[in-house]
């Protein structure tokens, strides 16, 4: 990655134009050509620096629901429990963390009523209490991930 790639990533974390020729507009603001911008974005995606170029959606505003849940998993069961949890397609991500509450996962569902059902299934399958911690308030952070 060179300085221009970093400039693109810093500038285009939000606010991509919705217009007929958005890459040309964005490229002009970055003092580069449309072709160069498109080629660089393609390479940054191909090389895995970007997971994609496009929209991010707000699940709740689409009528869906999201929660964060935690499990206190004994060390020797962490692999097996991760497999049980991840088998549910509603699990968006799942991290092991250094704490007695050792597994933290995000559940995202199209219908809000699916969330308690998935959590109940996980509790039954693992035999562990599931601690549901849905967000009560979100504090706005900026869009930027400065490179």
């Amino acid at each position: 990655m060179d300085a221009k790639d970093r400039q693109i990533i810093n500038a285009l974390q939000g606010g991509f134009p919705v217009s007929e020729t958005p890459f040309a507009e964005a490229a002009a603001r970055l003092h580069m050509t449309e072709d160069d911008l498109i080629a660089r974005l393609r390479r940054l995606c191909d090389e895995g620096h970007l997971s994609r170029f496009g929209p991010m959606y707000n699940a709740e505003r689409l009528g869906g629901a999201v929660t964060l849940a935690a499990l206190a998993v004994p060390d020797e069961r962490i692999e097996a429990v991760a497999a049980q949890v991840n088998a549910h397609p509603e699990i968006a991500h799942n991290y092991a963390r250094a704490h007695d509450f050792s597994m933290w996962f995000v559940v995202a569902a199209e219908q809000p009523e699916q969330i308690p059902a998935v959590l109940a299934d996980i509790a039954a399958e693992t035999g562990l209490p599931v601690y549901d911690m849905p967000k009560l308030e979100e504090y706005y952070v900026g869009l930027r991930f400065e490179l």
């Binding site: 991010m56 699990i91 968006a92 799942n94 963390r97 199209e110």
Partner: peptide
């Protein structure tokens, strides 16, 4: 402070499921 030890799963969900928790 809970540091991450391992990432077991991080997927792009279906469109209606995407978004931060």
């Amino acid at each position: 402070v809970l540091f991450s030890r391992r990432r077991f799963k991080q997927r792009g969900a279906r469109y209606s499921m995407r978004g931060a928790a």
